[in-house]
Design a binder for these strands. Structure first.
Lengths: 141, 141
DNA sequence: AAGGCTATGCTTATCGGTGAATATTTTCAT
DNA sequence: ATGAAAATATTCACCGATAAGCATAGCCTT
């Protein structure tokens, strides 16, 4: 299961180490796609297939838009022998990645954020501790 | 059932022994997450799985944020052959753990507190027995 | 063909995680 | 109370993950 928050650095060639705990779940090659909220989203091949199926079952104008967004915005990546992947320039740019990035596990996918963008996102008032406690109560934790 | 209060020490590598009475309930691997009052909160796999299912079924704009919050804020831990777990640096820092920690059972989860923080919390006026009595009355206990 | 660019791989240093060994304390049964 | 066994604390040595810099090979351009 992909969970946790890891702070890594891009090297000068735009490569980043994948947290070792994520490598088994992602597999040697995975699908990198543009995510919602200016982040990148990496799916194992299996997870990508099921995401794809969901997308293909949708109907209507919105569905066409989403398919264009996600299918055109995805690429296959390979983890090298040292556990790194190259983040293609287009994707670095899309997510505004600087040198410092945050890699987070969100259960079925792994997201890559620029560190500053992630911190900003997580400071959202909807994540105040009162709200969190409400959510936990609703969800039975 | 997880109940009781135990005083343990982190070793120099940031590991702590899990009270032997908790090991059966937690299982060999459990999920450690950031708790609400500067403490860490450990759930058995079963507890966490059911929480995860609830979380994945949420829909709407906040759902994505809550998933990111809860999944990124948790990590899987494994109890070693000597009954210890590593508390990752990020988590030690979050809960302000020094060498002396307190491990408390709260029925469905196990919490880890810095000893000083725990003592301070337990000296809270809201925990005077008169206040406890009032709270119980309000809740019809 | 020469120079430079890019992608990829290799090397080293550092740090944190892991496992073993041993010491100390606590618990429990006798 | 006493001894045995279990639990916890402490230390050391080793292994693996990550960061950073350098080296090499292939390719493009001129």
């Amino acid at each position: 299961m992909l969970i946790g928050e890891y702070f890594h650095n891009l090297d000068t060639k735009g490569r980043v180490s994948i947290p070792s705990k994520f490598r088994d779940d992602l597999g040697g090659t995975f699908v990198l796609s543009k995510g919602v909220n200016d982040c990148l989203c990496a799916y194992s091949k299996e997870e990508w297939e099921s995401f794809k199926e969901e997308l293909l079952q949708l109907r209507g104008a919105d569905a066409r838009m989403l398919r264009r967004f996600f299918f055109s915005g995805a690429t296959e990546c390979e983890i090298d022998t040292q556990g790194r992947v190259v983040i293609p320039p287009l994707y670095r740019e899309y997510a505004g990645l600087g040198r410092e990035v945050v890699i987070v596990g969100v259960s079925n996918c792994m997201e890559i954020w620029d560190k500053a963008a992630w911190n900003k996102y997580m400071n959202n008032p909807a994540l105040e501790s009162a709200e969190i406690e409400n959510a936990m109560e609703r969800l039975g934790l």
